[in-house]
Amino acid sequence: MLKHRKKRGIALITILMILAIMVTIATTMTGRMTSSLLRTEGLNFSQKVYWYGQASVELSRMILNNDFEDSDVISLDQIWATPDLIFPVEQGTISGSLKDNRSCFNVNAIGAADKDEVRALPVQQFQALLEALDIEEYAAEVIAESTRDWVDENNTEDAAQGAEDRIYEARSVAYLAANNLMVDISELRAVEGVTGKIFERIKPYLCALPVSDQSINVNTVAIEHSDILYALFKPKYEFSQEDFETLLEDRPSNGWSSVDDFLATGLLSGETISSELKEQLNVTSDFFELYGIAEFEKRLMALKVLFEIEDKKAIAIRFQYAGVE
């Protein structure tokens, strides 16, 4: 009798162990299946929001192409300049805005060397812009010269206030000067003299284009960024910052039709403008940046796309995911 009870006890324990193992296996399988379903759902949502993002790129391309077909002059009264466009789509929205990247100061244009001991004009202009933005004179000179050393091709300091590898190698986290064009304006933060506070102050006025020329579209410079035009003229002309603010406030709604028309305005008429400066002015643009946000089922994807205009057609040449601003 006692033996039978022991056998029944062992059998019961065995059954309970098997049951516990089965429950554990079932729980694990359920958890894995749930995770797999959630992962699949997440991938599905990610794909949808990705394609919504691609739709914003194509929409921007169409807008730019249409504006360039209609006019050789680019100005703020055109469709591309409409701020914060929002388009509802199934279970989400597509929104974004286009920025003319020829309405900002291209930092990659200041790599020019001095000639006959005369400081290169683009470097003077960059320093003038920094000073106009309330950066102290010496700090502005250090940043301007160090930026030139960063984007030029040589590894020698063009001025005493410049910075090359020896400066950056001495830092706690060492690195080297790029000696190449900046890919993104955030790269400026690595340049000698550019503190976080200074960077946030000057960032809205700057851009880093994949070319080394300076071409400012006088039709698209924002009134609040009139210091960009002031900086271009400052090395050789005695105008005030307020002069250019007033000039842009009086700008025709559809912009100036040519650079000559711009230079014939009351402020600039009668001035002899050098060919070097005149080449930096334009009434059209060849680079635009899209900042877009695609939303699907409360999932967001922010992106930045750089368009280059070739033969009046917009071509996306740089695509990057971005944070939501």
Rank of each mutant, 00 (worst) to 15 (best):
S253D: 13
S226G: 08
D243G: 03
H225T: 06
G266T: 07
I273G: 01
N254T: 15
L277R: 01
L248I: 02
S226C: 09
E238H: 04
T272F: 07
S274T: 01
V259H: 11
L248H: 04
G266C: 04
L268C: 04
F262M: 03
K234F: 06
V259L: 12
E238C: 03
D261Y: 13
S257A: 15
K278D: 05
L247Y: 08
E242T: 14
G270A: 07
S253M: 13
S257E: 15
D261E: 13
P252C: 10
V283H: 08
S274W: 01
W256E: 08
S285G: 09
L277W: 01
L247N: 06
E271V: 06
K278M: 05
S226V: 05
I273H: 00
I228R: 10
E249A: 10
D250V: 05
T272R: 09
K236L: 05
T284R: 12
T246Y: 15
S258F: 12
F239I: 02
Y230P: 03
Y237F: 02
L263V: 10
E279Q: 07
A264Y: 07
D261W: 13
E276P: 02
H225W: 10
S253G: 13
S226H: 09
E224K: 14
I228G: 10
W256Q: 07
E242C: 12
E245Q: 13
S240G: 13
K278A: 05
L281F: 03
E242N: 15
K234A: 10
L267Y: 02
E245T: 11
P252Q: 11
A231T: 03
W256C: 07
E271N: 12
T284W: 09
E242R: 15
P235Q: 00
E224I: 14
F239Q: 04
K236D: 07
E245I: 10
L281S: 01
E249Q: 15
A231K: 03
L232G: 00
E271I: 05
E242M: 14
L247W: 06
T284C: 09
V283Q: 09
T246S: 15
S274Q: 02
L281H: 02
Q280N: 04
K236R: 09
K236S: 06
L263W: 15
V259Y: 13
E249I: 11
E238I: 01
D250I: 04
P235V: 00
E224H: 14
G255K: 06
G255P: 08
K234G: 03
S258W: 12
Y237D: 01
G266N: 10
S275L: 06
S285N: 11
Q280T: 04
T265M: 11
T284D: 12
N254R: 14
T265C: 11
S274D: 03
L247M: 10
L263F: 12
T284E: 11
S226I: 05
D261K: 14
V283N: 08
S274L: 02
A264L: 10
S226L: 08
K278E: 08
V259N: 12
F262T: 02
I228L: 12
E249P: 09
A231F: 04
I228E: 10
S258G: 13
E271M: 07
P235S: 00
Q280V: 02
T265Y: 12
